[in-house]
Design a protein around this nucleic acid. Sequence first.
DNA 1: TAAGTTCCTTGATCTAGATCAAAAATTATA
DNA 2: TATAATTTTTGATCTAGATCAAGGAACTTA
Lengths: 246, 246
Amino acid sequence: MVTSITSDAVRERCAHCPGRSHSICNVIDDDDLPILVAESARVQVAKGRAFIEEGAPAHEFYVLTEGRVKLFNLLPDGRRQIAGFADCGDFLGLAAVDHYAFSAEAICDVTLCRFSHSGIERLTQRFPHLEHRLRDEASRELTIMQRRLVLLGRKTARERLATFLIEQSLPPCCTASDLLEKEEKPIKIKLLMSRTDIADYLGMTIETVSRTLGVFKKEKLITVQGVTAVTLLAPQRLRAIAEGNG
Amino acid sequence: MVTSITSDAVRERCAHCPGRSHSICNVIDDDDLPILVAESARVQVAKGRAFIEEGAPAHEFYVLTEGRVKLFNLLPDGRRQIAGFADCGDFLGLAAVDHYAFSAEAICDVTLCRFSHSGIERLTQRFPHLEHRLRDEASRELTIMQRRLVLLGRKTARERLATFLIEQSLPPCCTASDLLEKEEKPIKIKLLMSRTDIADYLGMTIETVSRTLGVFKKEKLITVQGVTAVTLLAPQRLRAIAEGNG
DNA sequence: TAAGTTCCTTGATCTAGATCAAAAATTATA
DNA sequence: TATAATTTTTGATCTAGATCAAGGAACTTA
């Protein structure tokens, strides 16, 4: 019985999907999930593998359901700019007209739901508010981009790294300084990417990243355990630096 | 007779609108324009006036119908990053979640069509493909943003300015290197913004902009008549520099 | 557990582009 | 048309961050 197979797929695919709640799928009722699943394919990508290639014809969208991905652009001589890191639930592929404007590579083993453009077309026909949700997603991304331009165009290394640390300390979806706590209680974060990735994200070199972290340590703004574990000792102070009041 | 008043408004507002053909309005049939007009208000903004304020609650969208606008962000100490220059037909306001992520200021006297979010809501309800058109607009903007990140994060002053000149030499809508002509015939362009604006757009200082133009002159890559008129003597060569093959 | 990789940090030096300063060109005003 | 204000160019100097070059840590793999 086809229906039961489909709902099995849904149970498997969506029921425990950690992205479900804040991905675009959150505008689809549970009852309608089979329709969504029918238009999507689960894809696994191994750590280090690219699955979107800048300049390639854009025929697909992706919802990241497990793992982490970096989005980037390359110059012919290898200079790299990382546009962002995608987390669980993030939607990939909007930055494309006919061709992808970026490449995407798995930072760790990754699971995705792949939707063809035509599939999404059918879905938006059926669920008009999905189209609105996609626009919303794009607006959210544009907002983030806007802040990144300021960071790359006008901020100092110190300000960039402070921005990055604060950004990493915020819960995934709340991109802005929504939850601005006044108190200076330490925040523990885990840096889930290499120094090279951080440097390419912030438009600087690994040496400057390392040195600036060193400065923050000396100023008792942070503490570093090993390489990836960082404790923000004075988040408000860091936030001030990030905004340019250093 | 109400209908006739409305169609008068349309005749006046849309019939000769230079933005009509490539703005979002191009998905609305001429016959339906009165509905569009009913949801919009014509706004005039004087040169130098800001009409969108970063951080202000976002309740409106704008279609630029006449003139030129700069979109920017400020840091508290006055450092400025210009995200882009909007031309006739451009749609403004997508980079906002609840609050605008940018400020917008008229470079010259400007005319806009203002739509409230709720008005657009009603229009997308009535014309579902308008919603798709808005997403498309957002995708286009995201594509541009992606390239800007590379420029600001990884390109040299020389590369930035070459990119800018090439960009300015392309017709308004064709953002990419769509029309890549192989021949090296000179292209005349007019820079419609001040050196300060160019600098803030490219993430550099006016002095570096000026000096780099000087270098290009010496290298016979360009010729400058007065301050605003520039002739690209070797567009292909400039394009190569822009891409990082300088 | 050791040896090889790879990644990160730290130090020394260099340089692209910023800053500071002033002259030249352009635009505005009277 | 002269003069003042503004904008742009050019020059001299400085510096934030890049580059070059070793050491150390931290993972791999055998």
